[in-house]
Design a protein around this nucleic acid. Structure first.
Lengths: 207, 207
DNA sequence: CAACCTATCACCTGAAACAGTGATTCGGCC
DNA sequence: GGCCGAATCACTGTTTCAGGTGATAGGTTG
């Protein structure tokens, strides 16, 4: 028997999901909350196996609530729930401990599949969400200028915290050369200092 | 009928999985490869629905092969397959387009569940893998010194590419003050220059 | 072969970052 | 009330970075 709790600020959604799950033999409805506070209040004296959680709520964001819940009760599996279908949000939810993510307009079957999957400890994304996530990952990589292998090498060393003289010594080149490559990196990636350079490099996974 | 292809450099694994899937009514075994080249060769004139792919292969890494395959044939779903259970690899696979990840010692049921899930476009991780992934995400956040709100604010502005004088002007403080905060950031995070600072900040998601 | 890109090296100047030291104010806490 | 940390400001050096400009050598390719 899987004990399910739901957090959503839309009563309609709570009702809808409640009725969808009503006749499921192995799913028990243990409670509901319309905001983060009352959700946290519930879990002081109660528990659940799976929490369906809206990511867009007033006050505390779903993302934050997710992190707090996982911190306090690591055993409770969280299934993200939203009308949104945006890669960024989904990624953040997973980074904060959610075990899955489905859209509110999912079919009954999808909902129940997802609840079972996360309850068993799996990570599960419904089809549409999975697509969006991969699309997002993809888009965050494209449209980048091509760096030469030397440039990538030096970029990596800069990111490691080495200065130009140190890099020069390390790879047996003149400090002037390192400086040239560094300037080319700034120009190619259209940034104006080391800080933006490294940020871009890490975010676009160039290193 | 789901057409399954497998890439793995261990014949034993290919055989094992072949026999596991042999009696499945809705799964068709369309071929196998023991390295990235022969895999790519196969898909020139053939296709499949799901590719089971080892992530640790000699020559081209599974991670790279995954990226190439997804680039050429976005419709083919890739299911990572390994004896490893390390968050970093798993994350990289997903970033490169894999739709799921299971361990080679998974049960028959898990394997078949996973194939169905990714075929339907879902993203799916088996229990052990999901745990490892979340554990990894978690570990990448802990053990960090506490930054004050001012420090976080200035860190964010540095990451945006602003210099000390610019930040000073922006938040109405003396450039000396910004410099102090900056030094505190370097000290607290135990790094020695902007490059390492920003790298750490992005990787640990401080900004 | 000429055009082009890469990788290399060089110099100069000004701006920014880093290192060290120290001081004041303000608020929270025992 | 005294202690502590956060936040602010200040000065002085030294090192590093950024911008500009230019040169040479080697490989690719039309």
């Amino acid at each position: 028997m899987i004990r399910v709790f739901i957090v959503d600020d839309h009563p309609v959604v709570i009702e809808g999901i409640h009725s969808l799950l009503q006749n499921e033999k192995d799913i028990a409805w243990v409670g509901q909350a319309m905001n983060a506070q009352s959700c946290l209040g519930f879990f002081v004296n109660n528990t659940a196996d799976v929490v369906l959680m809206d990511i867009s709520m007033p006050g505390m964001e779903g993302v934050e609530l997710c992190a707090v819940m996982k911190e306090k009760y690591p055993g409770i599996m969280i299934l993200g729930l939203s009308t949104f279908n945006q890669g960024l949000y989904i990624k953040k939810m997973v980074e904060n401990g959610a075990s899955g993510y489905i859209l509110k307009n999912s079919s009954k079957e999808e909902l129940i599949d997802a609840i079972h999957a996360v309850h068993e400890g799996h990570i599960y994304f419904s089809g549409e969400v999975g697509m969006a996530l991969q699309e997002y990952q993809k888009s965050s990589k494209t449209e980048l200028p091509v760096l030469t292998s030397r440039e990538k090498e030096i970029l990596a060393l800069i990111a490691e915290g080495y200065t130009n003289p140190q890099i020069a010594e390390k790879i047996f080149l003149s400090p002037f050369t390192i400086d040239s490559h560094r300037k080319n990196l700034l120009a190619k990636l259209a940034v104006k200092n080391t800080a933006s350079l490294i940020r871009l490099a890490v975010e676009k996974k160039l290193i």
